[in-house]
Amino acid sequence: MKSFIIVLITCMLVALNLSATNYHDVMKQNITKLIKSNSIEEINQIAATFERIANAEKEEWLPRYYSAYAHARATHFMSDTDSIDVSLDKAQAYINELLKSNEDESEVHVLQALVYSLRITSASRGYKYSSLSNKSLDRAMQLNAENPRIYYCRGNNVFNTPKMFGGGATKAEKLFTTANEKFESEKQENELWPSWGLYHNTQMLKKCKESN
């Protein structure tokens, strides 16, 4: 009888594994894939998967968040400004939904700030989008000052702003340092919670130290 139960449980586990419809597992699997991926095609596939999850799990905000984040991340592998704008338009569509459903979530505003910063593909867009980005980071800060990604994004904004407009590596270094401290003490609410930024932050910190 005991064995029969074991068999039954085994069977159930196998069945579960095969269908792979578990929200938590699919999310985790795709988040891991996204962080590792460096091909636009694969990232687009992942973004689409998050989109499908979002449509099936309407009450969850993380699928939409990750779909937007994937589209933002995809722009790192693009050079054509039109393609970048199209990808960011897709990200923005989800952020607009998130700003309605989860306005009080710090991470949503950080993602908005990231998307605004990525819009800066030419100097003429610099002023407008860096102002918007910083404004979003201000809101993220109000909601959770411990969020390391705020400091990381602000660091990037400052780093990419010309020195004469109050930017530069020296000022950015302080922000990346704070971000690193916050990353170390960061406690994820759950396994699926946003955790990106640490790797690039460390790289940027190194870059700042070298140039100063």
Binding site: Q45, E51, R52, I53, N55, A56
Partner: peptide
């Protein structure tokens, strides 16, 4: 290119 195709209410699909 990149159109999202899904079985309604599930995660199943592709682009």
């Amino acid at each position: 290119v990149g159109v999202n195709i899904a079985i309604e209410g599930t995660y199943v699909g592709t682009i």
